[in-house]
Structures are given as structure tokens and as C-alpha cells.
Design a binder for these strands. Structure first.
Length: 163
DNA sequence: CGCCTATTTCCTGGTT
DNA sequence: AAACCAGGAAATAGGC
């Protein structure tokens, strides 16, 4: 849920996260709606058919289906397909990449997660969490990140796993 | 149901 | 001044 619009209106005076404000019976808004921002609602009849892995094949198909953020970014980098200039390699060998269009970058992630309220601020926070786990490493320069030791599958000559 | 992980959401404050 | 970056906290969502 990402509709705190009512909150904003109510918290005009105090902006302290305390005060248990669990009383929000205000249903004055018939369609609180999600946080519609960019009214770009193309997809409707667009052929977004992923058309691959139709769940099955070898039995163990339950290990993961959620696609982690870093994998999503890696796949975006690896396929000039969708990635409309949202993110680009800075140095493929090093594993550094740069977010060119932060808005679209967040847009794409939002689509993937079916979250209309995604934005770069929140996406970048999730990315920052990766520094601690070693999936990403910090590098200087705005909008630039680097794959860490725990990330795999992004090298040009990487058969797959292999630390 | 509870625990756990991977984000997601929010926020304060600093930097470019 | 608008966009970013840094993290801490707390809330969620899905899996097990």
C-alpha cells in the first residue's frame, strides 16, 4: 500500500513520525488510488509477453521467483532490449554502471514489481542496502554503482556462478 | 501463526 | 534549488 495521501493532508502541522495515528477511518476519498504520478499508462494492449520459462521444466521450480533487484539490474544491463537508456555500463570489466535515466529506471523496476509508486529515491535506498551485503560496492560519482563480490552473472565471460 | 529476508516507505541531514 | 547520497527505523510482502 502506498497511499498515505490522506496522511499528508493530516500531518500538515506535525511531521513527527510518532503519535500513533492508527485512526484513519476517513474514507472521504472514494478512490484513494495509488500514488499516480506519471500518467503514462501505455501498456494496455502492448505485447509485453515475456514468453519464456512457463514455470516447469526441471522439477525444482520453487527456489525463487521473485527476481531480486540486483538481478533485475544485471539483466537490464545485459539486454539492450527494454533498457531504453535507463542504465548503462560505465566499465563492463570493472562491473561499474551508471543510471542514465533515474526516472525510467525506477519506472521499469516498478513495473517488474507491480508497484506504481516506485521512484529513484526508494530504489536507490534498496541499492544502498546492497553495500552491506557485498552485492554492490560503493564508487564515487553520482548515479554510478558497481557489482560486488556477491554479484555474479554480469561478466562478459562468466559461465555462471563461480563466486 | 511466527520467523526471516528482501525490499519498501519515510525521514533527517548532508552534498553536488 | 533540484537531484542525489547516507543510513537508521519501521513496515510490508512472500516464503517456509
Amino acid at each position: 500500500m502506498c497511499h498515505r495521501l490522506a496522511d499528508l493532508l493530516a500531518t500538515v502541522t506535525t511531521h513527527r513520525k510518532n503519535l500513533e495515528q492508527q485512526v484513519l477511518p476517513d474514507k472521504t476519498s472514494p478512490h484513494t488510488s495509488v500514488c499516480e504520478e506519471t500518467s503514462i499508462q501505455e501498456t494496455k494492449s502492448s505485447p509485453v509477453t515475456p514468453k519464456h520459462h512457463s514455470r516447469r521444466g526441471t522439477k525444482g521450480n520453487r527456489t525463487n521467483q521473485s527476481v531480486h533487484l540486483w538481478e533485475f539490474v544485471r539483466d537490464l544491463l545485459l539486454s539492450p532490449h527494454k533498457n531504453q537508456d535507463a542504465v548503462r555500463w560505465e566499465n563492463r570489466k570493472e562491473g561499474t554502471f551508471r543510471v542514465v535515466k533515474s526516472d525510467m529506471f525506477a519506472q521499469l523496476w516498478g513495473e517488474q514489481k507491480k508497484n506504481k509508486c516506485m521512484n529513484y529515491e526508494k530504489l536507490s535506498r534498496a541499492l544502498r542496502h546492497y553495500y552491506k551485503s557485498g552485492i554492490l560496492e560503493r564508487v564515487d560519482g553520482r548515479l554510478t554503482y558497481k557489482f560486488g563480490k556477491k554479484a555474479h552473472g554480469w561478466r562478459e565471460d562468466s559461465p555462471k556462478q563461480l563466486t
